[in-house]
Design a protein around this nucleic acid. Sequence first.
DNA 1: ATGCCTATTGACCGCTAGGTTAGGGCAAGC
DNA 2: GCTTGCCCTAACCTAGCGGTCAATAGGCAT
Lengths: 227, 227
Amino acid sequence: MPADIKTTTADARITAAEPRASSPELRAQDSRDEILKAATGLFANRGFHETSMSEVAKAASVSKALIFWHFKTKEDLFMAVLSGLLEPYFIDFTEEAGALDEKAQIIRLIELYLLFVRDNAGSIRFFVAQLLHDERPSDGLANQVMQLYDGYRTLLVDLIGRAQNNFVCIRDFPPQAVASMLLATLNGLLIGFLFAADQAVQVESAVSMIRQWLFHDGPQVGLPPSL
Amino acid sequence: MPADIKTTTADARITAAEPRASSPELRAQDSRDEILKAATGLFANRGFHETSMSEVAKAASVSKALIFWHFKTKEDLFMAVLSGLLEPYFIDFTEEAGALDEKAQIIRLIELYLLFVRDNAGSIRFFVAQLLHDERPSDGLANQVMQLYDGYRTLLVDLIGRAQNNFVCIRDFPPQAVASMLLATLNGLLIGFLFAADQAVQVESAVSMIRQWLFHDGPQVGLPPSL
DNA sequence: ATGCCTATTGACCGCTAGGTTAGGGCAAGC
DNA sequence: GCTTGCCCTAACCTAGCGGTCAATAGGCAT
C-alpha cells in the first residue's frame, strides 16, 4: 500500500476505441499531435497560466507524464502551439496579384487583410492577448508577428508610392504616412472584429470609405459579396 | 517548536521609517491604500493569475492575512483595482467644449482621445488584455468599458450628423458609418501606441489625414505641439 | 487600570500546480 | 527467447497557491 494517497486523479480516460498506430514512431507522432491539438484549444480559449498540464493531458486522453516526455516544459509546449498557430499567417501575395495595377493590388491587399481577420479571429485574439500580456522582448513571438506586420507594411508603402506616381492615389502625404494610416484603420476594424463580431456589416462601408479616401472613388462595391 | 516549518517567508519588510497614522481608522485606510497601490501595479504588469497574494503582500509591506482582512477574496481585490483604474476614464466633454462649432468639437474629441490614450497607455493595455482574455459576459468590466465606448461613439455620431447638415463634413456616408470609421482609425492608432510607442510621431500626420478626409482640410497643425 | 475593539500578524491548512521517477508494454534485431 | 530501445503510465514529490485562525498590539472609552 502506498504511503501517500494524496493523488486522487480520477483519470477517466477512454481506453477503448481508437486503435492506435502500430509502429512506435507513428504512435509517438500520433500522441504528439493529439497533445498539440488539445493544448492549442485550451491555450487559445483560456490562456497560458489558466491552463494546467493535467487539463491538457485529460483533453488529449494521455497521461500527464507523456506530455513532459514530448515537451520538456510547459513553456515548450506553449511555444510549439504558438508556431503551429502562426503557420497560416504566411501568405504569398506577390504571386497571386502580379498582373494587377497598383490600385487593384492595394484593394486586393485590403481584401486579404480583412478576409484573413474574419477567418482567423480566434487565433488573432489569442496572439494579441499574448502580445499585450508579455513584457519580455526576448519572446520571439513578438518578433515573428512584427516581421509579418512589417512585410505587409512595406508592401503597402511600395504600392502606394507607385500609385502616387501614377496619380491614382492621394498625394498629399508621403507613402509611409498613408500606409500607416491605412494600417491603423485596418487594425481598428480588426479590433472591432475581435470585440463585436456583429459589426461585420460595417466592413463593406468601411472599405468603401477607404477607397474614397485613397482613390477619390465614389461609393461602390469593392469586396466579394462573401464579406 | 512548530510541527510544520513549510512557511519560510523571509518577510524582509522595513519596519522603521514611515510613521503610521495613530488612529485605527486612519491606519486601516493607509494600509488599504498601500495594498491597492501594490496590487494595481502587480496586476497591471503581470495579470491576475500570474500575481499571487503573497507578492502583493510583500509589495505592500503588509502581511498576507491583512489583505484578506481588507478584501474578502483575491477577486475582490482585483475588482477594487479595476474600478480604481477605470476612474480617470470618465471625462465630461459637454462642459468643456460647448461653445465650439461642430468641426472644432469633433477635432477636440479626437484630440482628447489621443491624449488620453497617450497618458493612459498602461492601463488601457491592461484593460484590453483583460477584455480579450475573458469570455464571461457577466464580467461587468466589459459592460463598463463598452458603455464608455458607446458614449463616445454616440457623441461622435451626433456631432458628425450636425456637421453634415452644415456641409462642413463629408456627406457621402451616413453619420454612423463615418463615426465607426473614425473610431476604427482611432483604435488602430491606439493599438499602434500600445505595441510601439515610438510610432507616436506619426500621430500628427494621422490627425492631419483624418482632417483631410473628414473636412477636406489641407495639411495643417491640428494638435498642440505637446503631442 | 481595565476591558473593548479594530488593525495586524505568523503559523497553518488543504489543494493543485509543474515536474520527476521507476517501471510496464511492446515491436525489432540478435 | 532475450535483450534493446522507444512509448507510455501510475504514483509520487515539492513549492506555492488562496485562504483561515488564534493571538496579539495598542488606541480608546470607562
